[in-house]
Design a binder for these strands. Structure first.
Length: 384
DNA sequence: TCTGGGGTCCTAGGACCC
DNA sequence: TCTGGGGTCCTAGGACCC
């Protein structure tokens, strides 16, 4: 029988920091921009479980976090450190199975063939103990033949727990949980479901809701299948090569000054292009996104007609798109800009970068080779 | 309390082609 | 004079995830 052990690291960024700062164990610790450094625009990236007792959560504005827990210890984010730790975690997981699918920096699905839930639970114990003893990193693990169910189970096991859901117990396990615990159900979908009188996963199964769920399209069908204990899961479990890369920046102060914004957008366009190039990709389209001071967003994108590389096409097109967006805003509400973003999409491998790409995929993105059947001749025109 | 930075997927209309 | 269906690409916006 095939099992999914869904491994989710507990308070990952904080746990990485505590490896270097053992003296902080047991204290409310937060990774994020320090709100005591004056005017700071930012959110909590990770909070220790001690900090969570004060109500702190990931994605909470740091000003609110500071108000809730003035005694918290703040540590600035060190992403290279967390990337290194994530690689250590994956290396451990690969020792237990060749089928490890990372889903984010702190989550991965480990697939194994085992005769029963007993053995699956035993393997979960060993993985958890190894991560703790060798890396000093706590993890929670959910176990089910279904990846979605395993992930939900992980959340109920946190922190430092293990939850096994044998296949015949799936529907009963899910029934009392709120619909919001389903991955893909956010505030909007939750509100729609509440409007239908559906609060728990179990209520998704009742007869009269089936027709109403059609309002949600195919997603409604998937919700119903999950609730009944047999989720639709694609057999294609590989994570492919990246589709886009972006650089975003929230400005220190909202502004409508075009010179300032043009400088910023050029920096972002350069940054994104350099990143794409260093990963061995070219890009074929570009999107500039603006978040206004009222948090509404607009975006404008353009196809470049063919795969490009280097910073020049990115910088030039980003400047044009920004100008167009600002021009239109001036004739309207003329709001100030809070955030600028440049996204490069339509990524394709650069010529002669097969080796680098292979290394990239092995580093965590297991899956089909992106170059299969896609010879990339210089100057060859893209499909279309 | 005043909200980051990085991604993915879906929908929907219009252009364009056969 | 009035009438198709299917497919792909482009673009904008939105929901969601960590």
């Amino acid at each position: 029988m095939r099992w999914c052990l869904y491994v989710d690291m507990d308070a990952f960024y904080v746990s990485c920091e505590l490896r270097d700062r053992g003296d902080l164990r047991g204290l409310p610790v937060v990774v994020g921009p320090d709100p005591r450094q004056g005017h700071v625009r930012g959110v909590v990236l990770s909070a220790s479980y001690e900090a969570r007792r004060f109500g702190l959560r990931s994605a909470m504005p740091v000003s609110r976090a500071h108000a809730l827990c003035p005694a918290a210890v703040w540590i600035p984010a060190d992403f290279p450190k967390y990337e290194r730790a994530a690689r250590e975690v994956r290396a451990v997981l690969f020792r237990f199975s060749p089928d490890v699918l990372p889903f984010s920096i702190d989550e991965a699905a480990v697939w194994v063939d085992l005769p029963s839930a007993i053995e699956a639970r035993d393997l979960g114990d060993r993985i958890q103990a190894t991560l703790h003893s060798e890396l000093q990193l706590p993890a929670s693990i959910g176990i089910s033949p279904y990846r979605t169910v395993a992930k939900i189970a992980t959340d109920t096991a946190k922190p430092a727990g293990i939850r096994v859901v044998p296949p015949n117990e799936t529907a009963d396990f899910l029934a009392p949980l709120p619909v919001r615990s389903i991955p893909g159900v956010g505030p909007k979908t939750e509100a729609v479901l509440q409007g239908l009188g559906i609060e728990t996963i179990g209520q998704l199964r009742t007869g009269n809701s089936t027709s109403q769920l059609r309002r949600l399209g195919t997603f409604g069908e998937e919700l119903r299948a999950l609730a009944s204990g047999s989720p639709h899961e694609s057999t294609e479990l590989d994570v492919g090569p990246p589709k886009s890369r972006s650089s975003d920046r929230t400005l220190p102060e909202d502004t409508r000054d075009e010179a300032t914004l043009a400088d910023a957008v050029r920096d972002l366009a350069r940054e994104a292009a350099v990143g794409v190039q260093s990963e061995g990709f070219r890009y074929e389209n570009l999107t500039v996104r603006i978040r206004w001071e009222d948090f509404q967003q607009v975006q404008r994108g353009r196809s470049l007609g063919a795969a490009r590389e280097g910073t020049e096409p990115s910088v030039a097109e980003a400047a044009r798109l920004l100008h167009e967006l600002l021009q239109e805003e001036r004739t309207g509400r003329n709001r100030r800009v809070r955030l600028l973003s440049v996204r490069l999409g339509g990524l394709s491998p650069r010529v002669g970068t097969q080796r680098r790409l292979d290394r990239y995929l092995r580093a965590g993105r297991r899956g089909r080779a992106p170059l299969d059947g896609a010879p990339d001749e210089p100057g060859a025109s893209p499909k279309r």
